[in-house]
Simulated assay, not measured.
Amino acid sequence: MTQKPATDEPNPDLSAQEANETAPREATPETQLAQAEAERDDLKDKLLRTLADMENLRRRTEREIADAKAYAVTSFARDMLGSADNLRRALESVPDVARGDGEAALKALIEGVELTERDLLKTLERHGVRRIDPQGEKFDPNLHQAMFEAPDPTVAKGMVSKVVQSGYKIGERVLRPALVGVSAGAPKSEAPSGDADNGSTSSN
């Protein structure tokens, strides 16, 4: 009696076991809840980050708009400073005698130049440009540029003793620093020469 060759027939019991192992396991309610909470926390974090970015963008945009309005005339204002300087030089060059005892036409001219200067400064102020006149104030390197330092018994050391040229600010920025002289304080007192002579003669 001949035996039939063995064939690779599927084992129904083995196939069922493999199917059970490869089939996805159903998540438990606890696992589903944990996943939902993790997704919720992730979405909440993304939402908060987005809101924070939007708030920062809004503030930055408002600040840029405000700066653009405040400093839009910077170049024009800087060009106008030369005119303001010339008016100030013209007034400072007028002798005191001419102001008090000069002819009526000369007085009218001086008053006209003074009025023009005041009007120009008011116009600049309306656009946020203010003059820096630090006479007698403490020297500030952020606002002033020192041209020289000299002894001055009437002004304390480190204070502005002379304004060579007025400075200007636009908003909170320096448009042009003021050119100033700084006091070095009272000059150092020297011993009288007579005392030295007396000391040398007394020792002989």
Rank of each mutant, 00 (worst) to 15 (best):
N198K: 13
R25Y: 04
G171S: 10
R40G: 06
P134K: 02
I170D: 06
E18H: 07
T123L: 14
P12N: 08
K157R: 14
I132K: 01
R173L: 14
V180L: 06
N11A: 10
D41N: 11
G158F: 03
H144L: 09
E64G: 01
S15Y: 03
E92C: 00
P141V: 03
L43H: 07
K46N: 13
P187W: 04
N142Y: 07
S75C: 01
A84V: 10
L57R: 08
R118S: 14
E30H: 08
E172G: 14
P151L: 01
V163R: 09
Y71E: 03
A146F: 02
G158W: 04
G167L: 07
N204P: 09
V73N: 14
D8K: 11
A16K: 12
R131H: 00
G194A: 14
A156G: 12
R88Y: 03
G158K: 03
V73T: 13
N204K: 14
S161T: 12
K138D: 11
A90G: 05
R49F: 04
G185L: 05
K188A: 15
P151D: 15
E62I: 02
V174E: 10
T61V: 09
E149I: 12
E21G: 00
P192F: 06
G102T: 00
P192H: 02
E117G: 09
A72V: 08
D41I: 09
S203F: 13
S200N: 12
P5H: 09
G100Y: 00
I110M: 00
R58W: 03
V73L: 10
T74E: 08
L81M: 14
D41K: 13
N20M: 11
T123E: 13
F76N: 02
K46T: 07
D133K: 07
A70I: 06
R131Y: 00
D45R: 14
L120G: 05
A98I: 01
L47G: 07
R49A: 13
E125F: 10
R58K: 10
S189Q: 15
P153T: 03
K46H: 10
V73Y: 13
D41Y: 05
L115P: 00
D133T: 07
A27S: 10
G158E: 02
R60I: 01
E111R: 04
P12W: 09
E26W: 05
Q145C: 03
G199S: 12
V155E: 06
R173I: 05
D152E: 10
P141F: 08
E39M: 11
A184Y: 01
L175V: 11
K69S: 06
Q165V: 05
D195P: 00
V155T: 15
D45Y: 07
L14A: 11
E64I: 06
L81W: 06
S183M: 03
F139C: 01
L33I: 05
L57I: 04
Q32A: 13
A178C: 11
K122G: 04
R40C: 02
A23R: 12
E62R: 08
I170Y: 02
Q135G: 05
S15T: 09
Y71P: 02
K157D: 14
R126M: 12
D133P: 02
N20E: 11
A178T: 07
L143W: 05
S166A: 15
E114N: 05
P29I: 05
D79H: 07
L124Y: 06
D140V: 04
A38E: 15
E92W: 02
E9I: 07
A72K: 10
N56G: 04
L179M: 15
E190W: 03
